[in-house]
Design a protein around this nucleic acid. Structure first.
Length: 567
RNA sequence: GCGCCCAUAGCUCAGCUGGAUAGAGCACCUGCCUUCUAAGCAGGGGGUCGGGAGUUCGAGUCUUCCUGGGCGCGCCA
């Protein structure tokens, strides 16, 4: 806890506790005012507490002010407007922060709001029936960066990828591969409409031929083929998926969890039995589906989960009429197992096309935990892919979808990652494949990276000039407005990380990095850093450049974006 | 018909979980390179924050209704 923000926040909380012992001050914030003339920090404490304390805001502010004036880091305290308390920090306190940041930016940015809580982030979970396509990118990048931010803010993060390797899609995959495999041996096969059409299917077939020879051409029973080739096909697909994840610079998953294996252990049966004992699962008949006319509807008695008692609009079958678990049933078992594995908090990153399943699963989990909200689902709205202003339709069936690898080949991981995580998840947006191809500066990542290369370049130039800097740096020489602004922006880094973590919104980190780059670019153009005739000022400025570089590099690192020395 | 999400500059989007005078990029206009990378900087024009009502010291932000767009609505995955 070396950051000024953390220290001041702690002092504020402690003082409020003394002033108003019985009042809940959790809504009190310590922020950086937009307008610098309002001070370095501001708190809304007086206004938030006015009703709870039963005094006018400016009176509350006066109480708090008297406490704050005793803080050693504070130069002045002012009450403004409806009851804002504005703090001005002693310059020395800010200068001291620069050295702390530069010596260990990770420690500086870390916080304990996570309290060591075990949180599982499940994301990506692309079906192993084809390469990762562009539609998965948003959630995959989101989950990756969110995980990194949560780790930095004191959570114990577990990254999990659910391999959806049971169900009909796997039959289709195995069948598609098997047909292509037989085709390789000269058999005249007919590829049905529902088979996967991509070239990757042929590649797997070729691998199969290489490893097993003609063994599977003699087999006529598809069930036997499925049994024999399921693992081979899924493994081959997962190998490709893992390569894609690596290409996108996704931090390693802690576990790739196989749904098929889960089914085989009998875990879902066990969990359903327990739920049945608790009265949460019962046998019943559902009404016909609404909003759609179904010709072949017949009422059937199925095991149902009482999700309607927990906010869902209907009860949901956990098994289908063939006796297999439904997607919902398997998901329910899987998530119950997550809790049994000791995770206190579950975060799932899903695409908006799964939005309809959110309520039933969260409500089911609420039932299982006895009314604790353990599961949080982050929905990624759809990304519309456009080229030359026209939408590009993608379909796995037609085989014309844009793959993650294509985008990586075009723009590289840095641009792709920054582009996707720059935006908050609940808005849908257009990804222009034409612009992405151009690799121009419309992608803000170049702006941020360029700031970093400029910082590095200054030091290269300093070496070339043979400048010897002072060991004892006097930061008080940095009187320029841009320098003051930059320093104040740097000390707020931990606050922005905490907000990104607690809101579950990684894009805030991208915004912070962009602002930091802007502050630096602006400063860069207003003063010359390297001045042989004034080594003292040069030393102080380079100290600030070094500090800013540490923060910028660290924030880029958390986003999984590289910080190049040269561009 | 029902549920979830969205609507902010011409375009793409931020807006710090209710705070002080609503921001950035692109596009358009005007300036700044014989000194640290001009992939940059400084400035200008451009807004009824989709519309109405409400909540309170205070609303782009919360509630509600309306309009428009996206996603979904079997035992599929």
């Amino acid at each position: 806890m070396s950051s000024l923000y953390h220290i001041l926040k702690q002092q504020l909380v402690a003082d409020l506790k003394i002033l108003y012992p019985d009042v809940d001050a959790s809504n009190v914030t310590l922020e950086q005012p937009k307008d610098a003339s309002h001070g370095d920090f501001a708190t809304n404490a007086a206004m938030v507490l006015t009703r709870l304390v039963g005094k006018p805001p400016r009176d509350v502010a006066a109480d708090i002010k008297s406490k704050m004036e005793a803080w050693e880091q504070v130069e002045s305290v002012d009450i403004a407007g409806p009851g804002f308390i504005n703090l001005r920090i002693k310059p020395e306190a800010i200068y001291a922060q620069m050295h702390i940041i530069e010596s260990d930016v990770v420690a500086f940015g870390s916080s304990k709001i996570g309290n060591g809580e075990k949180v599982m982030v499940e994301f990506c979970s692309a079906n192993p029936t084809g390469p990762i396509h562009a539609g998965h990118m948003r959630g995959t990048i989101f989950g990756d960066v969110l995980s990194r931010i949560l780790e930095r803010t004191g959570y114990k993060v577990w990254r999990e990828f659910l391999i959806n390797d049971s169900g009909r899609q796997i039959r289709t995959l195995v069948n598609s591969v098997w047909l292509r495999y037989r085709e390789l041996f000269g058999e005249n096969v007919v590829i049905p409409d529902d088979a996967y059409p991509g070239d990757y299917v042929i590649e797997i077939a070729e691998k199969l031929k290489a490893s097993d020879g003609d063994k599977w051409t003699k087999e006529t029973d598809f069930e036997a083929v499925l049994l024999g080739l399921r693992a081979f096909c899924v493994d081959a697909m997962m190998g490709e998926i893992k390569k894609d994840l690596e290409g996108l610079k996704i931090a390693p998953f802690d576990e790739f969890y196989s749904e098929h294996k889960m089914q085989q252990t009998g875990l879902p049966e066990k969990i359903m039995g327990e739920l049945r004992e608790e009265g949460l699962v019962y046998d019943g008949t559902l009404p016909p589906p609404r909003g759609k006319i179904v010709d072949d509807y017949e009422p059937v008695e199925l095991p149902l989960f009482k999700s309607s008692d927990f906010g869902d609009d209907s009860d949901r079958p956990v098994k289908n009429s063939r006796g297999d678990f439904t997607y919902f049933g398997a998901d329910l078992a899987y998530h119950t197992d997550k809790l049994n594995r000791g995770f206190e908090r579950l975060i799932n990153v899903w695409g908006a096309d799964h939005g309809g399943a959110v309520k039933r699963l969260t409500s089911a989990l609420t039932a299982v935990t006895g009314n604790k909200k353990a599961l949080e689902i982050k929905l990624m709205q759809m990304v519309r892919f456009v080229k030359d202003g026209k939408p590009v339709k993608m379909s796995k069936r037609a085989g014309n979808f844009v793959t993650l690898r294509q985008i990586l080949d075009d723009v590289g991981p840095d641009a792709a990652r920054f582009w996707f995580m720059n935006r908050k998840p609940e808005t849908q947006f257009d990804f222009d494949l034409g612009k992405a191809l151009e690799k121009n500066n419309e992608n803000p990542v170049f702006y941020v990276q360029y700031a970093h290369t400029r910082m590095c370049s200054v030091f290269r130039q300093k070496e070339d000039m043979g400048l010897e800097l002072d060991k004892d740096v006097d930061m008080s020489l940095l009187t320029h407005e841009k320098e003051q602004d930059l320093m104040k922006h740097l000390i707020m880094y931990p606050l922005h990380l905490e907000k990104a973590a607690s809101a579950g919104e990684p894009h805030r980190l991208a915004a912070y990095a962009h602002d930091l780059a802007a502050g630096f670019h602006s400063w860069y153009d207003s003063v010359r850093f390297l001045d042989e005739s004034d080594i003292k000022t040069t030393s102080a400025r380079l100290q600030l450049v070094k500090t800013a570089r540490e923060v910028l590099k660290d924030s880029l690192g958390l986003m999984g974006v590289s910080a190049p020395d040269k561009m």
